[in-house]
């Protein structure tokens, strides 16, 4: 499958006015987003997600590295005929109505009124804003802004969508509707780079994810691979106090429950050692269950590990 987005060694540094301090917003980011996939682009605030998006859109310029969208290097304005961007906050002209906003954005792509009229109707229907199309944006709630944002982004029938927190500020029903729209767009063959703090949403709809922290790429891969069982839950009973104590010392985490000990461990050699302790103490191994982690577990662990270092 071809790459829809590719970055090579993308780096962005900000130098303070006195040149005394250099802040690294993005460090040597190399990744590929394949055509037709939903790619979860995750990280805590300040991790470099928005910086990456802004570089891809030509709003800021990389200090080092290169990036391509659909095979074209990003400095080429023509790239943006096939890209759509939904920002994380409602950054639109609030003196316009929803219809005027979508029409204006369509005209920036050189679309004629004949094509635009039909597309405006379809898009406002799609995002459920047809009823409020003639109201000015300044009268809108945040959720309505967000929906109009999606409508304006789709006006050029883009191949690649960069969505920065598309469900922020939406109620659960609206969040689900946006999620459905994203899935529908993927089914139409569009590539979606999705930044979101709603990790359960990302886990539900993404094909692959990348996790950034402090400007550095920490993990990238298919969700199934990243979340595959690494940790094992070991439950044992009929143990001596000394054996229980020994297991508690060996395991990453353990607790006592109804006379049993439940330990969690991901290192294979330590798991074997715990089993040896149970056997040596003539105890009974009740269960050994591989634990699939959630995206949230993985995310929190990566961020916490980095902070601990």
């Amino acid at each position: 499958m071809a790459d829809a987005i590719r970055t090579e060694g993308l780096t962005k540094e900000y130098v303070s006015a006195s040149a005394a301090r250099v802040t690294v917003a993005l460090k040597d980011l190399s990744l590929e987003v394949q055509e037709g996939e939903i790619f979860g682009f995750l990280g805590p605030n300040g991790a470099g997600k928005t910086t990456t998006i802004k570089i891809l859109l030509g709003l800021i310029f990389p200090t080092a590295g290169r990036a391509w969208v659909l095979g074209k290097e990003i400095w080429d304005t023509a790239v943006r005929y096939d890209i759509a961007f939904v920002p994380d906050s409602p950054y639109f002209y609030d003196f316009l109505t929803a219809e005027e906003l979508v029409r204006f954005h369509g005209r920036l792509f050189g679309l004629k009124d004949k094509v635009l009229n039909k597309r405006i109707d379809d898009l406002l229907d799609l995002v459920g804003m047809a009823g409020a199309r003639n109201r000015r944006l300044r009268e809108y709630s945040r959720g309505m802004f967000q929906r109009v944002g999606i409508a304006q982004a789709l006006v050029n029938d883009p191949k690649v969508l960069l969505l920065d927190e598309p469900t922020s500020g939406l109620d659960p029903i609206a969040q689900r509707e946006v999620r459905d729209v994203i899935l529908k767009l993927r089914d139409q063959g569009k590539t979606i780079l999705l930044c979101s703090h709603h990790l359960s949403d990302v886990e539900r709809i993404s094909d692959r994810v990348a996790i950034l922290n402090r400007g550095k790429l920490e993990r990238i891969g298919r969700l199934d691979d990243l979340l595959a069982a690494e940790r094992v839950e070991i439950t044992a009973e009929d143990l001596t106090e000394a054996a229980s104590g020994q297991i508690a010392e060996l395991a990453q985490e353990s607790r006592r429950q109804n006379g049993r000990i439940v330990a969690y461990e991901e290192r294979r050699d330590v798991i074997a050692a715990i089993i040896d302790v149970v056997r040596g103490a003539n105890g009974r191994l009740v269960s050994l269950i591989p634990q699939r982690q959630t995206l949230e577990d993985l995310f929190v662990r990566i961020v916490q590990q980095e902070e601990a270092q």
């Binding site: 802004k54 709003l59 920002p87 906050s89 950054y91 639109f92 954005h105 920036l108």
Partner: peptide, 11 residues
């Protein structure tokens, strides 16, 4: 930040 959605178009 209204400029973001404008300059992200082929302008």
């Amino acid at each position: 930040r209204t400029i973001y959605t404008i300059l992200s178009k082929p302008i």
